[in-house]
Each structure stands twice: as C-alpha cells, then as structure tokens.
Nucleic acid binder design. Structure first.
Lengths: 111, 111
DNA sequence: TGGCTTATCAACCAAACGGTTTATCAACCG
DNA sequence: CGGTTGATAAACCGTTTGGTTGATAAGCCA
C-alpha cells in the first residue's frame, strides 16, 4: 500500500485477520490496548503497530486516559467501503435468466 | 497478507488503486489483458501480476481465447465483503440522540 | 515456414509489512 | 522517592509486494 489515497489504506488495514478481530472487539465497546491484545499470541508492541495502521486508516481513535489508552472504533471509513462495494451490487444480484443471459450473450459477440 | 483466509486476500487485492480501476473497467464488461492495461503507465507484465492477485482472490476469471485472454469479473467475493462490512452498519448509522447517547455514557462509566 | 502479436514466466530490486528485542516515557502506588 | 505498569518508539530481520527487464509460449497470418 504505497499510495496515499484513503480507501486503499482502509482496505489494506482490513486485509489482516488480527486487525479485523480488533475491530470486532471494538464494535462491542471501547477497550484498552492490553485488553485488545490479550487474545493474540504476539507482543504488545506488535498490537501497538496494528493500532497505528488502524488509526492511520481512520478506523480507530486512541485517547490517553491516565496510564492507559482507550481505543474507540471509528466506523466512517467502513461506511465508505460499503459505498464502494455497493457499486458492484447489481453484478452479484444479477439474475442469469432470460434478460441477464441475453445481455451476456450480446456483449460476448460485440467485437 | 501472509494469511490464507480468503477475505484477507480479497481486502488485500482491493487495497491497490490499479486493481480497483481494473475491476471498475471489468464491471462494464469483459476485456482482454491489453485493453485492461492500456490506461496505466506500467508494463504488461505488471498488469499480468495484478491480474494474478485478483484471480487468486477470486475476483476475476481468465479464459484463453485464441491468442488472447478474456478477463471477466467475478463478483462473489465482493458480496462477501459487503456482508462483512454490514456487520458494522449499525455503528455508523447509530443516532447520537437520547438513546444512543445514553448507551454511550453508560459504557464509559462501566469499569 | 517464419514472423508478428498477446500474454505469461523468471529473475531481480527497492520499499513496505509483520513480527521481534531493546529502550524510553508517563502515570500510578507503596 | 523508587518501583511497577501500560504503552509506544526505534532498530532490526525475513518475507511480501509492485515494479522492472529479458526470455518464452501460443496462436494468427503472409
């Protein structure tokens, strides 16, 4: 993900099961970094890096609170993802019956 | 994206603007590799690699046809992505009015 | 047949990724 | 105060990624 465009960063952030699991946990409510890391067999530093990725993608917000950081999910980028993928909805909803099949065949013979 | 789980591969495939543009083109109909590559200032080999990524993610199908390859979009994984992100829909639709605000406050004071 | 076109394979390279270990910082607590 | 806890930063390491160039395969056409 070398690019700067925002949605690429969101997709890249979501392309990791650990980060998706963190988001799933955060969907149930805020948590500290230690709480988020508990289920995973990796170091706290690695969790911190995952949180950096999620934060840069705009998917979470970290707020300092005494010696802890509270982490909160930020769903706006997911709304953007839903919007992007909705562009393709008709493709997977398309019926391969009379009309659909006809259009398909039409297109195939075009060139 | 070292993991083998399918949706990670889909997200990773979508995390690149060139590949998303290729999908956008394919949403309008099948195309050859050369046609797909034309808009981009990169080599045909690089396009071929992008197609490999999309194919491994299940987002396209390539079929040989004389000396050309016809490339077709395969929308099923996008349906899966839509399903995944729909889990979070209530979060971005949540109203911050009486009820929503109350639940939020409740959660914050919990510990 | 030989040559052209279309597409892929293979080897290589620099940059990014996901993890580690070590060091540091900030805030509570005894 | 000093020690402990929670979290991050920095440096490092092996693998993956996105691109390149060069070689190769498959099929058309003159």
């Amino acid at each position: 993900m070398t690019t700067a465009d925002p949605i690429s960063g969101v997709f890249a952030a979501l392309a990791d099961p650990t980060r998706r699991a963190i988001l799933a946990r955060l969907a149930e409510g805020e948590a500290t970094v230690a709480q988020l890391g508990a289920p995973f067999p990796i170091s706290a530093q690695a969790i911190s890096k995952h949180l950096n990725v999620l934060e840069r993608a705009g998917l979470i917000v970290r707020t300092r609170e005494a010696q802890w950081r509270r982490v909160r999910i930020e769903p706006a980028p997911l709304r953007d993802v839903a919007g992007w993928v909705a562009q393709y909805r008709r493709l997977w909803e398309e019926r391969y019956d009379a009309l659909g099949g006809y259009l398909e065949r039409l297109q195939k013979e075009e060139p």
